[in-house]
Write a protein that binds this DNA or RNA. Structure first.
Lengths: 227, 227
DNA sequence: ACAAAAGTGTTGAATTTACACCCATGT
DNA sequence: ACATGGGTGTAAATTCAACACTTTTGT
């Protein structure tokens, strides 16, 4: 069997890791897991697990997330693989990374190993996980700029100033609140419901996502003008 | 040694594949390789090779490209890994894909196995390589819209209508030539040299890249307005 | 002279940006 | 009443988009 002569090439293992972002209590938050298995006991890192040799990546990820937060119902996207030979002490473990977005209300349970950390203040993580977090923040930003991705981390009913807050935290910048709100409304992606959210000052109007508007893809404007 | 108990997990192999794009004779072109090794003799696909268990991905890619085109001096970016369990007949071979951009004049040699094919008319390729090509076209488009990436596939001295042609082919659309040229000039990324390129009608002015302007990163305009 | 391709000019529309100002609430 | 955060209005500046027109070449 021809298989035999190639056997020496089949010496690698795989893992999935995910950076899951949500928005809760006015902050962007990242899900962090306390590791308990060898060789990284007592360290913290992105949620992840080893993929079995005959297991699809997507299945491994779903299994992991069911265990950890009780649902697989959230937006996700595969990012780069991390392939450095010596990134893992046990041998060559290639890491497939995902970034995910979930609204806080969709989180069904929290495994005791888990905690949320401010995305803008992530602690030191094991292996190269801080590099992965950088990648994730970048993808998150791209998602915000290019797609109506904010709604993935907002509850069903939300308020325009929260969208502003999310963008400001994601880009570490200040934006003109009044112009930003007008832009959101003009996009027709949201529709007002007849409720408000109480707060210290004037209460903010609640909106929901206008699902019909989100369908039609954005116009893909082609120009020599970089964003 | 703890290694032993994890041994059953180390059963995967890796490959690199690259979609290398250039611009030549008025067309966007993709580099295609005729395969000669088992199990895909006589098929064509993206240039690629198996990565040895202790070989860095980047090293494998460089080795491959030196062999094929005699240089590793070109822009490249890692894309998604292809991880499906059954994508390769010999076992689980995970494929790390890259897309690359090279100006035609930088290609030092052409291995006899290689040929250029119009990017908009790629033939049937082996395995899932046609899927990879789709991914590559997408990344190429994103690169064009968001970064001054065109210059990677243009010669030292180029002409504005060629940039127009590239964008039009990449996006399968027509653009207003006069407005597009004005946009390029306003970007200050190019500076005219005192030469022209002869052609049928009025000769076009030659330009070079203004390397000082390319340094300062684009302003990262944050808005609720998707491109 | 004429066709073809390159490049310039002009104009109205649309979008952006910066603020001034008004509104609805809790204390 | 007033501080606070939410929201509307407006006007100048900039960018976009369509297209008429001029320029420079080869035939």
């Amino acid at each position: 069997m021809a298989m035999f002569e190639f056997e020496h090439l089949f010496r690698g293992a795989f893992s999935v890791n995910i950076g899951l972002i949500t928005y809760h209590e006015g902050k962007l938050q990242l899900l962090i897991q306390e590791k308990e298995d060898y060789p990284s006991q007592n360290e913290t890192g992105l949620p992840g697990k080893i993929i079995l040799p005959n297991e699809e990546t997507e299945d491994a990820l779903k299994k992991l997330m069911l265990e950890l937060i009780g649902t697989t119902n959230f937006y996700r996207k595969q990012l780069n693989a991390f392939t450095k030979v010596n990134r893992h002490p046990l041998g060559r473990v290639v890491c497939f990374t995902f970034y995910g977005l979930i609204s806080f209300e969709k989180v069904k349970q929290m495994s005791s190993k888990l905690s949320w950390h401010e995305l803008n203040n992530v602690p030191n993580l094991c292996y190269d996980h801080n590099d992965i977090v950088k990648l994730i923040r970048n993808s998150f930003r791209k998602g915000l700029v290019r797609h109506p991705r904010v709604f993935e981390i907002l509850p069903e009913e939300f308020v325009l100033p929260d969208i502003l807050t999310i963008y400001q935290q994601a880009f570490l910048t200040k934006l003109d609140a009044s112009n930003f709100s007008k832009q959101i409304i003009k996009s027709e992606l949201v529709k007002p419901i007849n409720k408000t959210r109480k707060a210290f000052g004037r209460p903010a109007k609640l909106y929901t996502l206008n699902k019909s508007a989100i369908k039609k893809k954005s116009k893909e404007k082609v120009s020599f003008n970089f964003y």
